[in-house]
Design a protein around this nucleic acid. Sequence first.
DNA 1: ATATGTCTGAATGAAATTTTACAGTATTTT
DNA 2: AAAATACTGTAAAATTTCATTCAGACATAT
Lengths: 290, 290
Amino acid sequence: MPDNALTIADRIQNQLDQLTRAERQLAHSILENYPASGLGSLSVLAKDADVSAPTVARMVQKLGFKGYPDFQTALREELKAKGKTPMARHDTWAEGAPSGHVLNRFTEAVIDNIRHSLAQIEPAEFDAACALLGDTDRRLHIVGGRITHTMAEYLFLHMQVIRQDVSYIQSTTNTWPHYLLDVKAEDVFVIFDVRRYESNTLKLAEMAREKGAKIILFTDQWRSPVHAYADICFSTRIVVPSAWDSAATTLLLIETVIAAVQDINWDSTLDRMERLEDMFDQTKLFRKFT
Amino acid sequence: MPDNALTIADRIQNQLDQLTRAERQLAHSILENYPASGLGSLSVLAKDADVSAPTVARMVQKLGFKGYPDFQTALREELKAKGKTPMARHDTWAEGAPSGHVLNRFTEAVIDNIRHSLAQIEPAEFDAACALLGDTDRRLHIVGGRITHTMAEYLFLHMQVIRQDVSYIQSTTNTWPHYLLDVKAEDVFVIFDVRRYESNTLKLAEMAREKGAKIILFTDQWRSPVHAYADICFSTRIVVPSAWDSAATTLLLIETVIAAVQDINWDSTLDRMERLEDMFDQTKLFRKFT
DNA sequence: ATATGTCTGAATGAAATTTTACAGTATTTT
DNA sequence: AAAATACTGTAAAATTTCATTCAGACATAT
């Protein structure tokens, strides 16, 4: 609420003494299952509390509201505010920067995206997707578009370490039909497609589907048309205060998938990682320390 | 989830495919701050979602409710049922998954990383970096390594739209010395280097520095040795419950930089974006709608 | 015990809300 | 490319909802 930090429940509690008998009875009924009961119609609330309708109208006015609708609006606002987690309320992330600084505005939006996106994910679907990705009997193809190919490649780079038979297809090139030649029914496609959905990607998904391959789709909240062909679809919120969309939430999800898949075949992953280390040591690509 | 396992939000999510464009738009608006927005009047909800009132009435019927009041009652019942466990504690991000599920553990860690990383950023440094990146009198070179090249390319793809004279160098190839031939003292390098710091990248940084170029470094909390040559250094926390490190915080920072730089030269950015759109339209790479 | 002040609840009228019907427009299919 | 289908918004009707008035009941004080 704009005026004060007091919740409506507090205001009722505080004024409990100044209320009459029927009003107190009503107040307790409201607090009984707060705030749900206050969001229904006046008459239902009155009946639930065993008081008359005018009593309700009078009390909310006594609490300082213009009328019952005003009271309800306030309740809804409060609920909306509570929906934002205590962490989201923490609206300065970069200390020393004003809360209106782009650092804080942007971070705020991304945290918001994360919360919304995660809430919509079915854990069962997530687990199923990870099981598919970890199944080494199935070959894995990872597909990205103009912007999303960076995300696709990120997933590819890690999956390559975890397991064998992983390939990376960039839908913006015209070489991708080659990859589809030998696709089998057990194969799995991970497809990335977000706003400015790409026709190439859609065509690719259609053809993969025809061959009987499984499709896991990473898209935005509006869902790429590819989702018609997808077995599993993860949609993330991508809106931020910018001319472009944010891939941060998508990346978070990708990394979580990587962590989960790595656990499935941990033994073989460990083995592959060690062999990779050896090879890196020989190439001197990386520094030993510091 | 006590009575019938699926909440109204789930029902909306599930039927998203059977909904029309305006209805989907409305559905997202409802889920935006659920359930508060659904508890107001039909007309307000319609206005918030930018659809007409009848669209709202039609959709709730499509969802299986007798009418809007019926829908609201169901929402209130759900809220009442949830009563005991409101969204006070949000340590579970993916509702429906146990708090020990990798989805929640991972997200928790990333949020933690974001908080720690952002707190360490000097807003003045951030602004200075953005000013350098937005200065079209300076040529811009973006450098990534084995894993980080995906982040580098993400930044490159967007910078390319915002401004001219941007080049992308992959330090793992051996072609990068060519890029250094014509480097001038005003040039700016953005270098990505995280754990398993790469010797190639260090060498590149050293040579760029010798030529007098400015260096902006994105690294992890332990700081790449490149930071000795860097004018500005952003270090982010990257630890997550996984065998690998997380790039999510780095990406968040990159996207924030993009948003800030885009604002600096907004006019020219807009112009370049429009011209790009035209070219996309001609190539038919993207679908017009849906 | 009676009178006064206050509170409560039923009924009414007014206002707002939801619903239905319809027509225009966009989209898809043939 | 044309026809058919389906979707969306405007406008008006029907229903519900809320505020108010007024008569009666309860408690309290004299």
